[in-house]
Design a protein around this nucleic acid. Structure first.
Lengths: 232, 232
DNA sequence: CACCTGAATGCTGCATGCAGCATTCAGCAC
DNA sequence: GTGCTGAATGCTGCATGCAGCATTCAGGTG
């Protein structure tokens, strides 16, 4: 699991980051250096370094000497999506002026997952497609700092995201957006970028995030605790 | 300079960050742990931790085992301002809906520096006012993540920023924006926020950054190496 | 039984030892 | 003089020792 090639601290960092993002380490959970060091078969030093990095990203939090996985309130997630509103918009704008044929193909392929009906068990695949779709727009923008910021934002938000996919699949929930809503919003973004229209592209991207934020706040009123966040 | 109250690594981090941002440590300069440790009278450990943090923020860069202050190309700065285009816009939008009387007063006070003629020697004061003006809009937005991202972006860009103020004061340079241009753009932002108009506020904020980017790219053509960046 | 107090425990943050890697420089060969 | 080789140097990354702080738990007191 931990190889000797790259710096241990970076590997530990990635390991912990992934566990936090995927929910293996839950919000509020304490991160104890010696435990983690024992798990990963390294000394405390690279673990300590990794914790410093995670703190810098906001994924963990310093609470009275101890380190804990950050606990995000709904308000935090909404704030993060407001950031995404700005960043995604600019990314789509830039992407519209730099898109190439192969990149278009790639974007289209990510959208395919939303066209076909999907088995319950494959909802995570839908999620991955969604991630890839948005990420690829950032890549096409050619702006590495935009990529960085959006990744930080997405990572942080995903700390909150655990019960997302299950909820989206729940047709009972009045607050759930239909898969079709998301599909249409994605398609609008795709079409605008394909047409190389910056203004329309940015507007479509922002509209998408706008819907997510509205949905989050509506879900907040209904659920208060458990939230139905669909696409990001 | 280094007290015993807070964690040494955080103090070292701030010390180095400030030195990088203010140009005391120049782009490309190597950061040697033992040297810095000796300067700051601490051991290598907190210095090493601080370097890890700085790397996470992009201020320094890992180059073959050694750590060096990041060297930003003009392209990087332009990319950062595209980020700011998105972030500043959203911040202004949110600020417009949350502005209060005292915050308006504060914003206005920051603008005053641009109204009155300023001695050459006081150009740095102008710069500080500009920083405060934009920062305060972020604060008023009430979105801590927006604040975080904008700070990261500004810090990084300022690695590049050293010859800014001097250039702005050079009336010979055909690429320089007049102080009056900046003043008017700031005023437009202020007025829109004061009027609590989200759309107008965002548009004004974006327009401001748009001008900065245009100016950067124009300056690039003219100077290629040394750039006349005015307000951020 | 509740509360207060002090000792033991656990964990972090900093210092330092140690090994490995790259770079450099000196000396030698051509 | 130029180019190559090998040793010495310098620096990082990881492991571990050590001290301080907070938390906890046990035992005693009201």
């Amino acid at each position: 699991m931990i190889s000797r090639g790259r710096a241990l601290r970076d590997q530990v960092y990635e390991n912990l980051r992934d566990r936090i993002v995927n929910g293996g380490l839950k919000p509020g959970e304490a991160l104890v250096e010696v435990e983690l060091a024992a798990q990963l078969q390294v000394s405390r030093t690279p673990v300590s370094n990794a914790l410093v990095m995670l703190r810098e990203r906001g994924l963990i939090h310093d609470v009275g000497g101890k380190m804990e996985v950050s606990v995000l309130k709904l308000e935090d997630v909404v704030d993060l999506y407001w950031c995404r509103m700005g960043l995604d918009g600019v990314a789509a704008r830039l992407a519209a002026s730099r898109i190439t044929k192969p990149d278009l193909k790639k974007l289209e392929s990510y959208l395919k997952a939303w066209e076909t009906p999907i088995r319950e068990s494959d909802l995570s695949a839908l999620w991955v497609s969604d991630l890839n779709f948005h990420r690829h727009i950032y890549l096409v923008s050619g702006n590495q700092h935009l990529v960085r910021f959006s990744e930080m934002s997405a990572e942080l938000a995903s700390v909150y995201r655990r019960n997302t996919i299950r909820r989206m699949s729940d047709p009972q929930s009045g607050t759930s957006r239909s898969r079709n809503d998301v599909r249409k919003e994605h398609h609008a973004i795709f079409e605008a970028i394909a047409a190389q229209n910056p203004d329309t592209s940015e507007a479509a991207a922002r509209q998408h995030i706008q819907m997510v934020i509205a949905h989050l706040e509506q879900a907040d009123m209904v659920l208060d605790a458990e939230v139905a966040l669909v696409a990001h």
